[in-house]
Design a protein around this nucleic acid. Structure first.
Length: 400
DNA sequence: TAATCCCGCCATTCT
DNA sequence: AGAATGGCGGGATTA
C-alpha cells in the first residue's frame, strides 16, 4: 500500500486564546473528541496528499487510532462521493477530491433518470409537510417502484438484492446527496432527510425513526467534514437541517465561525467512554466556515465535469495546492482567506491544545520526531498530530 | 428535554 | 471456518 508521507504540522500562529468554557477535560470523556466528522477530517489529512494511491483499512485504522468499524463508516461515504474506490478487500484506491464533481454529476444524472423525487426545492422546508404516518411516496412524482423505498424513487434496489444494501450507509449517502443535486433545495431538514431517505411511511415507531436519524448524522458528519454540506437550521422552525454547499462551498470566503462546527470534533482520544481521558486533548472546534451560498444552482456540476483541480475541499486541502500561487488570482486570494479563517478557534472549550510554543507543542513535536507516522502504537501518538494538521493544513508548508 | 451520535454487538457476506 | 463488512440501536454526552 502506499504509505502517505506524514502530514505537516503547524508552524505558526497563536490560537485564539478566547476559548474557554466547560471542558470535557474536567470529567474525562468527551465524545466531541471522537466524532466521526473529525475522524474523517483526520483521515483526509492523512491521505489527501500527493503520492497516495491506495489505502489499507488496517493502516488507516491504526494510524488514526480507531477501530476498523469506524473506518468502514468513513470509507463508505467517501466512496459514495467518489473520493475512494474499493479495490480489494481491505484496500481502497484514493481518487481524491477531484473525483467528486464527476461523482456528483453521475449521481445527479442517475437521480434524474430514476425520476427521483421532485420534492422540488421549495425553499421553505415546510413547503411540504410530512406527517408521520403518511405515505411519502406521493411527493415523489408518479411512478414508484413498488418494492422498496416508500419515500423516494431513490436508488433502484437490485431486484432481490439484499435488504442490506438497501439500507447501507453508502446507498443512503448517495441518496442523501441526490436529494440536493437533483433538486433545487438548498436546505433539507433532518426530519425530511430521514423521511425521504428511510421513510417507513407507516408505523414509524419512535425507536425506528431515531435509528435512522442516527445514520443521517453519520453521513452528515463526514459530508460536513468535506464541506459538501453544512449543518444549519431551518429558517423558520429552527429545526436541524443541512445546507448543501457542494462544489461551491470551496469557493466561498468563509464567514466568522461560531460554535463547534458540525462534525468537526476531535477524535481519536484513546480513552474510552466513561474512562478518564489522560491525553493531550484540549478542545478544538468551530473552525469551519459558514459559507454563504446563494440560491441553489446545480449547474455548477456541469462546470466541473472534468474534475479539474479547480476545486478544493474542506479546510484541509493539500498544502501544496493551498499554497500554490499558480491558479487564478481570485482563487489564490480565497485560499489566503481560508487559511486564516481555518485557524483553530477554540471557542467554548477549555484548555487549549496549542501547537505553538506550549507543552502540547513539545509533545506534538516529540511525537512527530519519534513516530513520523510509522508507529508501533499509533493510537497513542498520532491523533494530536493529525488534529493539528487538519486544522492548520491550509497554511502550512512543511515541518518543522 | 431534545438533539447528537459513540460504541461495539453480532448478523451477513466474503475469502 | 474464519475474516471482513457493516446494520443497528442502547445509552452517554451535549446543547
Amino acid at each position: 500500500m502506499t504509505a502517505p508521507p506524514p502530514p505537516p504540522p503547524a508552524t505558526e500562529q497563536q490560537p485564539d486564546p478566547a476559548s474557554t468554557g466547560p471542558s470535557a477535560r474536567s470529567h474525562g470523556y468527551s465524545r466531541k473528541q471522537k466524532s466521526l466528522g473529525l475522524l474523517c477530517s483526520n483521515f483526509l489529512v492523512l491521505y489527501n496528499r500527493d503520492g497516495v494511491t491506495s489505502i489499507g483499512l488496517d493502516d488507516a485504522a491504526s494510524r488514526l487510532g480507531v477501530e476498523r468499524r469506524r473506518i468502514y463508516d468513513i470509507v463508505n461515504v467517501l466512496e459514495s462521493v467518489g473520493v475512494l474506490a474499493r479495490k480489494a478487500k481491505n484496500q481502497y484506491s484514493w481518487k481524491g477530491f477531484k473525483a467528486i464533481p464527476n461523482a456528483l454529476q453521475e449521481l445527479r444524472e442517475e437521480g434524474l433518470r430514476e425520476n427521483i423525487c421532485n420534492f422540488d426545492g421549495n425553499e421553505d422546508p415546510k413547503g411540504y409537510q410530512i406527517s408521520d404516518d403518511e405515505d411519502d411516496s406521493e411527493r415523489c412524482g408518479s411512478q414508484q417502484n413498488e418494492n422498496s423505498n416508500p419515500t423516494l424513487n431513490l436508488k433502484p434496489m437490485n431486484p432481490k438484492s439484499d435488504n442490506r444494501r438497501e439500507k447501507s450507509l453508502a446507498l443512503l449517502t448517495q441518496n442523501f446527496v441526490k436529494l440536493f443535486v437533483c433538486s433545487n433545495v438548498e436546505t433539507i431538514s433532518l426530519d425530511e432527510a430521514a423521511k425521504l431517505l428511510l421513510g417507513d411511511a407507516h408505523k414509524a415507531s419512535v425507536m425506528r425513526s431515531t435509528a435512522k436519524v442516527r445514520r443521517i448524522y453519520d453521513i452528515a458528519n463526514v459530508l460536513s467534514s468535506m464541506n459538501l454540506i453544512e449543518k444549519t437550521h431551518t429558517s423558520d422552525t429552527r429545526k436541524p437541517a443541512f445546507k448543501w454547499l457542494g462544489l461551491r462551498g470551496k469557493e466561498e470566503v468563509p464567514q466568522e465561525t461560531k460554535k463547534r462546527a458540525f462534525g468537526t470534533d476531535i477524535t481519536n482520544v484513546s480513552s474510552k467512554r466513561g474512562k478518564v481521558d489522560s491525553s493531550i486533548g484540549g478542545k478544538l472546534d468551530g473552525q469551519k466556515q459558514k459559507g454563504l451560498v446563494g440560491e441553489a444552482d446545480r449547474s455548477n456540476l456541469e462546470d466541473s465535469k472534468d474534475g479539474s483541480k479547480s476545486y478544493q475541499f474542506g479546510p484541509f486541502a493539500p498544502v501544496t495546492i493551498a499554497r500554490a500561487g499558480t491558479g487564478n488570482a481570485r482563487k489564490v486570494h480565497d485560499w489566503e482567506k481560508l487559511t486564516s479563517t481555518y485557524r483553530p478557534q477554540y471557542q467554548n472549550e477549555g484548555p487549549v491544545f496549542s501547537l505553538y510554543g506550549s507543552m502540547e507543542d513539545m509533545v506534538l513535536r516529540s511525537c512527530w520526531e519519534e513516530s513520523n507516522l510509522t508507529l508501533v502504537n499509533p493510537a497513542e501518538k498520532v491523533w494530536p498530530l493529525l488534529v493539528g494538521c487538519k486544522l492548520y493544513a491550509p497554511c502550512l508548508n512543511g515541518y518543522p
